[in-house]
C-alpha cells in the first residue's frame, strides 16, 4: 500500500507496510501514481514529461520496489495474531487519586471529576494496594508507570506523596523502577508541590487551553470564576523549574476555538516548549463538539501549525508539539505499532476505592469493571476482548495509511460512539491522518534544511 500527498511544496510518498518514506520530484510522484495501473509505454502517453524523464523516474521506482521500499505487501496480520496470544504483564496504572475537582470544565469527560459517582479521594491504603497489585502483575518488567489523575490530583496530594514514598521502598525490594507522572489544573500548585514533582515526577501535564478568553470560557472554577490568571504564572514557573523538560502544557480545543493554532502559538509565545493541543471528544449534541463540517478548518490549522513549527525551528526558537512528534528512523517494532495502546491488559485505571477498569475513560461504566486492586482481575474475558483488539480487527484500519503510527485509535472513543471497541471513531481518524501527514512533512523540511546547510558548508570550503 502506498499513500501519496503534497504538503507545503513537498511530494511525499509513504510505503505503508515497510515504513519507508520518500520525498520525490513531480515526475516520480506521477509515475508512482500510475505504476500499478499501466506500463511504461502507456505512462509516456499519459504524462506530460519527456520520455527520458519518465524512463529515469520509472527506473528509480522499480529499484525502490526491488529493495522492498515501495509497494510492499502487508504480511503482518498472522504475526500480530501470534503476538496478541502472548502473555502480557501490567506495565502502567492510572490512579484516580481524586474524584473531585475545583474546576468545572464544560467539556470534562469525567463530569467535574466525579465520573458519574460521588466525590471521593483515594486513601493511602488503596494507593499502596494498587502499587502492590502492579508489582505482583508486572512479571520481570523493570520500568513501571504510575499516573496520578483525577479529578484534580492536588486535592489529595498528601496521599500522592505517601504513595510515591511507598513506591520508592518497593523499588529496592523488587528491582523495579517507578516512573510517576501527574496531571494538574494548576489552581493549588505551590512551591512545595513543584519541588516534590521536580524530584519525583517523570512528567507533569499542566492543563491550559491557550488564549485567556478560550481558557476561561471552557475552564471556570466551581464558583464560576476565571482560572487563567491564577494558573498561568504558576505553570510558567513550574515549566521553568523543570528546565523546560519532562512536562506538557496541554490544552483541549473545541469547535468554539477552531483557530486552535493560535492557542498553540500563544503558549509558545509565553515560553512553553512542550505543548499539546488535543481535539475535544464530546457527544454530537454538545455545542462545543467537533463536527464533520469543521474538519477542513482543522486541517488548515494543522498545516499552519506545521509551517510555524518549521519556521521557529529555523529561527532557533523551537517548541515541541505532541501530535507532530514522530520517529522515522527508530520508533517501536511493528508488533507494538499494530497491537494498540495497551488498555485493558498492560494499562489499567484504578478508582479511589480500588476498582480496576481498562482505562481512565471507562471509569464509571460499570460493565467494564474488571476487578479490584485487593483481589485482582475477576473479569478476564473483558481483558481478553481488549487484548484481541488490534488494527486487523478493525475493518477501517486495514485500509488506512496511518495504521502503523496510530495503532488503531482509542477504544474508549470507539465504544462511546459505536458501542464496540473494535470500531473506529471517524472524526478522530481523519484528524490523526492529517497529523501524521504534517509530522512527516516537518521531517522532510528539516531534512532539506540539513542538506542545504551541509551543501553551504561544502561550498564555503
Amino acid at each position: 500500500m502506498v499513500h501519496q500527498y503534497k504538503n507545503n511544496g513537498y511530494n511525499i510518498v509513504m510505503d505503508v507496510c515497510s515504513g519507508a518514506i520518500h520525498v520525490v520530484d513531480d515526475v516520480t510522484y506521477d509515475v508512482i501514481a500510475l505504476f500499478e495501473k499501466c506500463d511504461l509505454e502507456d505512462m509516456k502517453t499519459k504524462l506530460t514529461y519527456t520520455p527520458a524523464e519518465i524512463e529515469e523516474a520509472y527506473g528509480e521506482v522499480e529499484e525502490l520496489k526491488k529493495e522492498g521500499l515501495l509497494f510492499t505487501e502487508d504480511n503482518y496480520e498472522d504475526y500480530i495474531q501470534e503476538v496478541k496470544e502472548r502473555k502480557t504483564v501490567v506495565k502502567a496504572l492510572c490512579l484516580h487519586i481524586a474524584h473531585d475537582c475545583n474546576l468545572a470544565c464544560r467539556y470534562c469527560f469525567a463530569g467535574e471529576g466525579e465520573y458519574k459517582g460521588d466525590r471521593s479521594l483515594m486513601s493511602e491504603e488503596v494507593g499502596k494496594a494498587a502499587l502492590d497489585f502492579l508489582v505482583a502483575n508486572s512479571g520481570n518488567r523493570h520500568n513501571l508507570e504510575v499516573d496520578f489523575f483525577g479529578g484534580e490530583p492536588t486535592l489529595n496530594f498528601g496521599v500522592v506523596r505517601k504513595i510515591v514514598e511507598y513506591g520508592r521502598e518497593l523499588e529496592k525490594m523488587h528491582d523495579k523502577h517507578f516512573r510517576f507522572t501527574f496531571t494538574t489544573n494548576g489552581l493549588l500548585v505551590n512551591d512545595e508541590i513543584m519541588e516534590f514533582s521536580n524530584r519525583e515526577m517523570d512528567n507533569v501535564v499542566m492543563s491550559i487551553d491557550g488564549r485567556k478568553e478560550v481558557h476561561d470560557r471552557m475552564r471556570p472554577t466551581r464558583g464560576g470564576k476565571n482560572s487563567y490568571d491564577v494558573i498561568l504564572p504558576k505553570f510558567l514557573r513550574f515549566a521553568q523549574s523543570r528546565n523546560h523538560q519532562r512536562y506538557y502544557a496541554r490544552g483541549t480545543f473545541t469547535r468554539e476555538n477552531l483557530d486552535f493554532s493560535q492557542d498553540v502559538i500563544h503558549l509558545a509565545d509565553l515560553g512553553f516548549k512542550q505543548i499539546s493541543m488535543e481535539p475535544v471528544v464530546g457527544l454530537p449534541e454538545e455545542p462545543y463538539s467537533i463536527r464533520e463540517e469543521d474538519l477542513p478548518q482543522i486541517f488548515h490549522e494543522y498545516d499552519l501549525l506545521a509551517r510555524e513549527l518549521i519556521r521557529r525551528n529555523r529561527e532557533g526558537r523551537p517548541f515541541q508539539f505532541f501530535h507532530f512528534m514522530i520517529d522515522l528512523t527508530g520508533g517501536p517494532c511493528v508488533a507494538k505499532r499494530l497491537s494498540g495502546c495497551g488498555s485493558g491488559t498492560e494499562y489499567l485505571a484504578v478508582t479511589p476505592w480500588g476498582d480496576l477498569y481498562p482505562c481512565h475513560q471507562f471509569v464509571g461504566e460499570d460493565e467494564f469493571k474488571v476487578g479490584d486492586v485487593f483481589h485482582g482481575i475477576n473479569k478476564p474475558e473483558i481483558c481478553d476482548e481488549f487484548r484481541n483488539c488490534n488494527v486487523y480487527t478493525k475493518e477501517k484500519c486495514k485500509e488506512c495509511f496511518a495504521r502503523f503510527y496510530c495503532s488503531g485509535g482509542c477504544a474508549a472513543n470507539a465504544w462511546k460512539f459505536h458501542g464496540n471497541i473494535n470500531e473506529t471513531y471517524d472524526l478522530s481518524c481523519q484528524m490523526e491522518r492529517k497529523r501524521v501527514e504534517c509530522a512527516i512533512m516537518i521531517k522532510a523540511a528539516m531534512a532539506e534544511e540539513r542538506e542545504n546547510m551541509n551543501n553551504g558548508e561544502e561550498t564555503q570550503q
Binding site: 519507508a20 518514506i21 520518500h22 520525490v24 528509480e60 520517529d327 511493528v334 507494538k336 497491537s339 496510530c406
Partner: peptide, 18 residues
C-alpha cells in the same frame, strides 16, 4: 537517486530495547 530522497515484539515511542 536523482528523483527520490528517502527520509527513512505510538509513532514517537522508542523501543526500550533500543
Amino acid at each position: 537517486m536523482k528523483h527520490v530522497k528517502t527520509l527513512t515484539g505510538v509513532g514517537n515511542q522508542t523501543c526500550e530495547n533500543e
